[in-house]
């Protein structure tokens, strides 16, 4: 156990270094390179997930929350732009920490696409929801995340963050791998998604405002029930 948890980061550092050096050569393939970085990151988290010590209950909790995150938009069918997925991932990160937050986000994206149909967007969704989970987990002990308004602000930022990352794959599709992206194009592309991202940001903030505390309370209660309190 101990040995493996050290090898994983070492491998990651090597891979990242290799990718950085490679990207100096293949400057016109920066998007492919970013894709490789993303793949390396996902792989690293997966290897860590495999090797760390873990209760069965934790596995089941991740699966339950990920499944809820991926079906959560059903009751919101009549409300444009609202879906609770990001909100659920943020609160799981806050309660269970970065690694669990990442798994909830990543698995929610992968599994719901396995049901609905995979597309080129799958890895990006995995990455962005995984990252939101990680960041919520890493920041959970900071003072502003302990504060309700801090979390609400964070939720709003996550809405735009999600949009920004998803735009990257959209831009890749639009601009292709060669360096034809002009600043104007990037700006107008991001501008076009701004309205949609704002909906996302506002709904995240509202969910955290009205339901944030109760969801955190519920998850904390089950953390105890599953015997996962450290």
């Amino acid at each position: 156990m101990q040995r493996r948890s050290i090898t994983a980061p070492v491998i990651l550092i090597f891979v990242l270094a290799a990718l950085l050096i490679a990207s100096a050569w293949f400057t016109d393939h920066y998007i492919l390179m970013s894709f490789a970085v993303l793949a390396a990151g996902l792989l690293f988290m997966l290897v860590r997930f495999e090797s760390r010590k873990m209760e069965v209950g934790e596995l089941v909790i991740i699966a339950v929350i990920a499944a809820i995150a991926s079906v959560g938009r059903i009751p919101f069918a009549g409300i444009p732009g609202a879906q609770p997925t990001t909100f659920v991932i943020i609160v799981s990160g806050v309660v269970f920490g970065a690694e669990t937050g990442f798994m909830v986000g990543g698995v929610a994206a992968l599994a719901s696409n396995m049901v609905l149909g995979q597309g080129p967007w799958t890895p990006w969704q995995m990455a962005v929801w995984g990252l939101i989970g990680i960041i919520s987990g890493l920041l959970r002990n900071r003072r502003f995340m302990q504060n309700k308004w801090g979390r609400i602000l964070f939720g709003a930022v996550c809405g735009y963050f999600f949009g920004a990352i998803m735009n990257i794959w959209g831009l890749y599709a639009a601009g292709g791998p060669a360096g034809t992206l002009s600043t104007k194009m990037v700006l107008s592309y991001f501008g076009a998604s701004l309205l949609f991202d704002s909906f996302h940001a506002i709904s995240n903030a509202l969910f955290l405002l009205v339901f944030g505390d109760i969801f955190i309370k519920i998850l904390t209660r089950f953390k105890g029930k599953y015997g996962l309190l450290q």
């Binding site: 596995l59 699966a63 339950v64 990920a66 698995v107 929610a108 599994a111 719901s112 396995m114």
Partner: peptide, 8 residues
């Protein structure tokens, strides 16, 4: 993943 797919 199996659990999640079963839960969905």
């Amino acid at each position: 993943l199996m659990l999640t797919l079963r839960f969905i």
